[in-house]
């Protein structure tokens, strides 16, 4: 519970800010690029929704959470290792690996899809505001676009990505932290390696899931 709170709510401000600006930028870019009378304005809303749901709120938010939450997990567990806190758990008859890692994996697998949905909403809404505010896309068109061609399958695809990414963001850095040897320098190095490996694994998995589900 504490983990869910820290990792979920703790990431809300960051996710809000990023989703807000990206939603806005997508709308401006799309609008300025399709400056033609033949292309209906509602496509702007449609594009914003598709980009947010399919890719941005899962993959980009995932990468950002790797940097924020993943490095924190590796550092936390790594510090517990080098300060003998993990040894202390073992002495007290605790299976330290599952005691430390399981709650984090659970927390992120549950919280990541929720963050994803939240990011979708913030991004799509911010696009709507910017479209209306700048006059690039009237409110009505935007709403039609955002609701156009809504496929449940794509939501499923995004949710599966969010679940898988949540698992990676928690488990890979935990592993790196758990097996740290040495001192503070090694903890820092392990945290960096954890971020790099998780990012790469996340991107590869993104490709695999996309090929399996969308092709």
């Amino acid at each position: 519970m504490r983990e869910m709170y820290v990792m979920g709510l703790g990431s809300l401000p960051l996710v809000s800010v990023i989703s807000f600006f990206v939603g806005a930028v997508i709308v401006i870019q799309t609008a300025t690029n399709i400056d033609s009378a033949f292309i209906p304005k509602y496509l702007i809303g449609f594009t914003a929704k598709q980009s947010m749901v399919l890719e941005f709120s899962t993959t980009v938010i995932g990468l950002i959470l790797v940097g924020k939450v993943g490095s924190a997990i590796a550092t936390e567990i790594g510090t517990m290792r080098i300060t003998e806190q993990i040894d202390a758990l073992e002495i007290m008859g605790v299976n330290s690996a599952s005691f430390l890692i399981l709650p984090k994996v659970l927390a992120l697998v549950i919280m990541n899809p929720i963050l994803m949905i939240y990011s979708d909403f913030v991004g799509i809404l911010s696009g709507m505001f910017v479209g209306e505010l700048t006059g690039l896309c009237p409110l009505n068109d935007y709403i039609i676009g955002a609701r156009y061609y809504f496929k449940l399958y794509e939501v499923l695809y995004a949710t599966i990505k969010a679940l898988a990414f949540g698992f990676i963001i928690a488990s890979v850095p935990s592993y790196y932290g758990y097996y740290v040897k040495g001192g503070a320098v090694e903890v820092g190095a392990a945290s960096t390696r954890a971020v790099v490996s998780s990012s790469i694994m996340l991107l590869i998995l993104n490709y695999v899931i996309t090929q399996l589900m969308l092709l």
């Binding site: 510090t79 003998e84 806190q85 040894d87 002495i91 008859g93």
Partner: peptide, 19 residues
């Protein structure tokens, strides 16, 4: 081992308190 460890108290060199 767990059973034996019930009987063990250990003060670590760096205290190892849970932060």
């Amino acid at each position: 081992k767990r059973k034996i460890r019930q009987d063990i108290g250990f003060l670590f060199q760096g205290s190892a308190l849970f932060d």
